[in-house]
Design a protein around this nucleic acid. Sequence first.
RNA 1: GGAGAGAUGGCAGAGUGGUCGAAUGCACCGGUCUUGAAAACCGGCAUACUGAAAGGUAUCGGGGGUUCGAAUCCCUCUCUCUCCGCCA
Length: 424
Amino acid sequence: MLELQRIRAEKKEIVERMKVRNMDTQSILDLIEELDSEKRATQVELDNKQADLNKMSQSVGALFKEGKKEEANEMRSKASAMSDEIKGVKAKFAKLGDKITEQLFHLPNVPNTNVPNGKSDQENQLISEHGTRPQLSNALPHWELAKKFDLIDFELGVKLTGAGFPVYRGKGAILQRALINFFLSEAIKEGYEEVIPPILVNEASGYGTGQLPDKEGQMYHVGADDLYLIPTAEVPVTNILRNTIVKESQFPIKMTAYTPCFRREAGSYGKDVRGLNRLHQFDKVEIVQAVHPNNSEKTLQEMVSYVQSLLNKLGLEHRIVRLCGGDLGFAAAHTFDFEVYSAAQEKWLEVSSVSNFETFQSNRLKLRFKSDEGKTMLAHTLNGSALALPRIVASILENFQLDSGEGIKIPEVLVPFTGFDKID
RNA sequence: GGAGAGAUGGCAGAGUGGUCGAAUGCACCGGUCUUGAAAACCGGCAUACUGAAAGGUAUCGGGGGUUCGAAUCCCUCUCUCUCCGCCA
């Protein structure tokens, strides 16, 4: 959520930067500014009237004590009138506040100056490519490999739950667990504290990180208890810091978590959802940081390098792209995506997204820090997938399958975690 | 799930309609004293909005109500604790 002070101070720049998202925010910002100044004026009026009432009320008490009953009653009826008047002003004040939040809640983050213009993912900026492509003459897609080697049973998941809820079994399940362990132990080496958060969150947490109200329909909602299944560990982990004031010396705050993630993916269809490409339930290790505002872009770069190191260790060909304004998520100010090459599908699969949210989340979360000068300011938050499992599994299966068709080689770094070096 | 009790500043804990934004203790910060420390003593110590400042306003778990006036009374929600039941 944008800060009102920022809108007041930099409206022109914000309008310019929002154009990068192909959004014209001029009129909405004008409206917010107008509502804001009206609200502030109303507050002054309210404060003054309230101050008057407080004085009157005090004198009622004093007059009664002095035994001046008539004067007291007179004052009381005057105060009563003032009290009614205040009720009206209060209602107006609250209504203005609601209107402002309503507007603010639906306004996405301002892309920072590193973000290029662009309408869709077609215009994302290729930053770098790494690794080599395996030479395979008859590569099978991962869903066929999964079936052939009895690793993942999609039909069984349909029986138990529905499409998009696969059952991993045997070496498929072990590979899954090995990847989780590998990612967590790497993150811990990198200085992240591991947490195991709840995977159901309340409404306030959903608002805190920006999934609500923007992505309302994307989350599974447990109606009986009014809780949401998390779409990413970002939600519970970042909300750990909701409503806190940390010391500047505590920065950077680094946390990592493995959780299953749940997404309704309403509207997805076709070959995009084939196999592991898009699931309703999947596993992911997430990294989250809260840092000093001056350091967030540097931190973003560090997180990008870290994610890259994971893909290098796994030996997967990948590329890094910088999202253009049109592809940027609602809450993000700057995002890098990681894509791995899928040898059999012959396309790039997104496996990680690393973002700087600047103050967008911390403003909602009320995540602040006390600077060394004693000033209370909003922190910057960042997070990234490190990594999302399904497409990593897909590309491991596809890229490391033996051309002979006899099996799949396990990346060396995973062998200590799997206990086997080959699926056959 | 049933019965009861409770929620106050960083923590502990007073306060049950009128100078209460809130006693007191601890913690914390500054000072005096000390070779240094401890102790003792003195002072400071919530957040937000508003104002040049003085100050004003709001906040005692959340929301609503009664009243001239609510931490204090009423309603409601959430959470915590105790007992019973159930249970990995």
